[in-house]
Nucleic acid binder design. Structure first.
Lengths: 123, 123
DNA sequence: CGGAATCCCATCTGATACTG
DNA sequence: CAGTATCAGATGGGATTCCG
């Protein structure tokens, strides 16, 4: 595996984050830059703190672009960079896989939890 | 986006975890079941607690299989289930993407951080 | 060897308040 | 509108100790 000091780990750790996946997925889905509030509404459940934090993290890594229009009221749009489009293909594949296999995984969970209960009863 | 109560979110959140990616990647790389310590050594840096926790989580979701040999000393092997092989293809793609693009991302980080420093100097 | 249990600190969550 | 600041509470991760 990548050693603990391998730089690629820092990249993986940005992507191995549910909010990063959701943000990339949401921007990607609409294929156009989106405004702060518009995007946040799509995410359903994210706190404003984590939302901003995730946007900054993705922007720092060059996966999303932040365009500020100095108008009143202020307008800020977030869009994918070419690099973001590239990785978005992957993160979306993960999300789609989850949707396609959610039933099978829930069945596995039920079986696992059921077995755990029986084992407890033995005591 | 998937609403906050969408079941698929629980699946995504298991996969959107660095240790889950590493564990799946490590078992997958060797294409054979691996023992607890053997596997853990490959992960380099994971604590025993997170390691066990991640294994349980993946086992519960039916992505990995846990085979116990009631010998002395005990021997336990972990291998991918068919479902685990399936998703492992995706998680590995994410890890590979990170390795391939690490230079570009580090360059973006440097530029971003540099700009932040200059902005600070303005004050 | 392959864990479970415990303690402790870091991070996340959620609510609320404030600002250019 | 698009943020930043703060604070209490819940959860997650790391280090250490102990056990069949």
């Amino acid at each position: 595996m990548h050693g603990r000091d391998c730089p690629s780990r820092t990249v993986i750790e940005v992507l191995a984050n549910k909010w990063a996946l959701y943000v990339l997925g949401a921007i990607r889905r609409y294929e156009r830059p989106m405004r702060f509030s518009e995007l946040r509404r799509l995410l359903d459940g994210i706190t404003q703190k984590m939302f901003t934090q995730t946007l900054r993290s993705l922007e720092r890594d060059g996966l999303i672009r932040r365009d500020v229009y100095p108008t009143v009221p202020p307008k800020v749009e977030y869009g994918l960079t070419p690099l973001g489009v590239d990785v978005g293909w992957l993160t979306n594949a993960v999300a789609e896989w989850a949707v396609e296999n959610v039933d099978q995984i829930f069945a596995a969970r039920d079986a696992y939890d059921e077995k755990a209960i029986e084992t407890t009863k033995q005591l």
